[in-house]
Design a protein around this nucleic acid. Sequence first.
DNA 1: TTGAATTAGTAAAACGTTTTACGTTAATTT
DNA 2: AAATTAACGTAAAACGTTTTACTAATTCAA
Lengths: 334, 334
Amino acid sequence: MKSLSIKDIAVKANVSITTVSFIINGKAKEKSISEAVIEKVEKIIEESGYKPNQIARSLRTGNSNIIGLIIEDISNSFFSRIARLIEDKAYKKGYKIIYSSTENSVDKAKELINMFKSRKVDAYIISPIKGIEEDVQMLINDGNPVIFFDRNLPDINTSYVGADHFNASYQSVESFIQQGKKNIALVTTDINVQQITERCEGYKKALEDNGIKANDDLILKIHFNQDEAETINQIKELFKNQKIDAVLFATNYLAISGLKVLKQINKKIGDDFSVIAYDDHEAFELHTPGISTVQQPLEEIAENVIRLILKQLSSKAKLEHQQIIIPAKLIIRD
Amino acid sequence: MKSLSIKDIAVKANVSITTVSFIINGKAKEKSISEAVIEKVEKIIEESGYKPNQIARSLRTGNSNIIGLIIEDISNSFFSRIARLIEDKAYKKGYKIIYSSTENSVDKAKELINMFKSRKVDAYIISPIKGIEEDVQMLINDGNPVIFFDRNLPDINTSYVGADHFNASYQSVESFIQQGKKNIALVTTDINVQQITERCEGYKKALEDNGIKANDDLILKIHFNQDEAETINQIKELFKNQKIDAVLFATNYLAISGLKVLKQINKKIGDDFSVIAYDDHEAFELHTPGISTVQQPLEEIAENVIRLILKQLSSKAKLEHQQIIIPAKLIIRD
DNA sequence: TTGAATTAGTAAAACGTTTTACGTTAATTT
DNA sequence: AAATTAACGTAAAACGTTTTACTAATTCAA
């Protein structure tokens, strides 16, 4: 069964396609269509259940009311939660979100950008990775609104919303030091993005400022795409071979692997061993004892992302780019 | 900067639009275009970075290579994990997935269906809720491939893939009984979907078969859209007022709330109090002691969903609908 | 009572593809 | 030499909208 087109409506109402189009788009008044015709057409549309074909619409107008969201991995709770918030807020403004995961693959990220491009999304919200600079720059050059979140690419000049990763790690480490910890480890990933680098910098600076010499043996960089089993092994090695009394995990999934290790080797978290994890996760609140975490302000990040992107969409002129850094919150649990 | 169109390529190559189109779509051989022309055009396409406008393509062909996925809530780890798997598998076959959450609102679900419809997605993967029967039936009548997963709507005749919820609860309860438990509670939701009903039925049947009379006071139905604080209160009431030695949670987020209650009231899980949760979650493995769970076979569900939907997409004829029920796995932890 | 302005509406082009149906020319067959 | 086939390719319609530029009829002002 073919679906109805504007033409069918026009025929039924015995008016022109143009008239129907004006009515659908709320331009009836402005185009001086009579009240009687408006009512007639609206009634027919209502009764028939006609819905405009968005594809034809997009083809003609060049925009889609769709915003593309590119993230690392939708099954990571940080991203799925933020996706949900962004989706919610965009929805209220009449925009739909389509999202897809890059799995930290440059190729997949490029493909996604192309896919969104050829589908003419109106704007791009990207949690970027190194290696896609050129593609993103092209988007920007072509006049597409692009906003980064969570991570930034320093070479690209566009708006960015993210948490204050540097200070968050800095504070985490300071809190360890205040508890009297000396041998503080950092478990992080080897993906080369600003946000991760900053977390590492904050860690080092805090140690330094407190007169503790950073020890490279206490910094473990986990390869991004590896199996969890391998990760667990590496963390286990670290815990066994080094004298450690506190550890900061730079992402929630690393922390989860780390907690599994602690469970396996039966090491208890307590006075002589502390843990802080980046990015909150249900498991941390529930854990006994509770795991302290750096809570990113998801709601605020989503809010700002949407606000900026809508501002860009509604103003034809190019706006000045903004860098919004939101403080993260250190939640101490026990 | 306008993006390139097929016409630009045609002009550059000094051939017709038709020829370019044939080459792009791999029909050059079949339409007897000479090797020389093919090469020339391909070179120009390559150099210019031309990408066909998918919107124009969709308008003309009537399909989009996009599959719409409608779920309850992308921030629930069950859904985000399955979404990721489905996305992955579809991607490998050249399909993109666009997904959106209904938040268990009938209105939003209907709107999503409409949105997908007007964007001409090629197929629908839906985790349905009661109240959208008509809309779904219309999709099916219009010849769209539709497949349900996780939940089913008994009135609608279409393919379905899901776990064996009935047996999973049945076995969970039996395992409680084998441990000598007598007062077994069920915490579930009030959303009226088959999957939830089945979990409840399995619970009751297992009690009955073992000569235990089901006690309605031990069944707590939580209203779906309420605040977590409220949920926690209700569960707390249940635990305080009733004599309970085991509890089965029908969804992972209820179990998480339940565990929070246990932590608050300082009730330990152990020999005299057992817990089983539906849908695995990282928090359960990490919990001390580990929380036993009913693990749904995500991979297999995703696999089957994609397999069925692709089969329907590639065959013009209407296929027989299939109901695939996959056993769930009870993971006992401690 | 004429010309301008307003009202009510429409025809047709355009968006960028795919696809059908149709040329040409050259080679081959009868 | 006429007829057929093959090789190589193209013109134009169609998909369903939006939007520009127009017309025809009526009202208004002077």
